[in-house]
Design a protein around this nucleic acid. Structure first.
Lengths: 149, 149
DNA sequence: CACTAATAATTTGTATACAAACTATATTTA
DNA sequence: TAAATATAGTTTGTATACAAATTATTAGTG
């Protein structure tokens, strides 16, 4: 049977394989970050704070494309590890301002190189042209799904 | 600064965006499957059993690229929903043979079309050539990471 | 044949995703 | 100005990922 007519072709080739690749990326990053007391998801949060400066939990949730409840829990862990701190917003008592500690700042700056070298290995042997197409497809998939959800 | 020299380019463009796309795919499928009492991950398990016939939990874990502990829990839920059953392996008392029930069989056959139409929307506007490059990049990323883990 | 090593599956613990409900506070409305 | 509505963040519950340990059973070894 022509593969493109197979009822599960897209489900397998796009769905299953994207999800599987995502799990491997997360697992690989977790292995590298473990010795710093971090996980891949926590690294994303630290990265966002480092890139964009202090922000509310709401904005951090948006910036990292994570559920607010999930961000609450991740912040609990990062706060306990003294990588960041929650400060009350004097202008809005519902709200916090999240900022990196000096420890968090230093570690984040240090980890950029290590994480990049992990990804250099992950993409080894893939042409820049193919990486570019991959990125564009990811963007289009994301735009399509944002309009379906 | 040239983007390709940006220390977090690959982390963001490959890492973050792949993981984000994966979450959106899972979320979208969950929305569609919810009314059948299923999740995206459970659907993967049913699909594998439908495609390849009865098998042990160990083989099912390999076929769906899931942790064995995770498969145990997913099977608990699918068994409770009467989509499948665990039968003792007469040749090896450590082992079960997992098989779909009639209910599971019928529902799995029914869902192929619905899931495919979800993916038709997800990939809307993306050329077959780009989808093919995307699939090849996913494969290469997967091969690279399997050798790193 | 008894002991050792390996295997199939389960259990425990933790992290994250996410739906839904809740609490405290701010904003809007009549 | 009081009541209604909305918002920021938290809590609860469930599903899944995954590491690590455990249990019951099978296979291998001396």
């Amino acid at each position: 049977m022509d593969q493109s007519k197979d009822m599960s072709f897209l489900d397998e080739e796009i769905g299953f394989n994207t999800v599987r690749t995502s799990k491997y990326i997360t697992r690989l990053l977790n292995q590298h970050l473990k010795s710093y007391g971090l996980t891949a998801e926590q690294w994303t949060v630290l990265k966002r704070l480092h890139q964009r400066g202090n922000m509310s939990q709401k904005h951090l949730s948006e910036a990292s494309d994570k559920d607010q409840a999930t961000v609450t829990k991740i912040l609990d862990l990062l706060e306990a590890g003294e990588f960041l701190e929650r400060k009350r917003n004097p202008e809005d008592r519902r709200s916090f301002v999240i900022g990196l500690t000096k420890k968090g700042e230093a570690l984040t700056e240090q980890l950029y190189c290590e994480v990049d070298s992990v990804f250099q290995k992950i993409v080894n042997g893939i042409s820049e042209k193919d990486i570019d197409t991959y990125r564009q497809v990811l963007s289009k998939l994301h735009r399509n799904m944002k309009s379906l959800i």
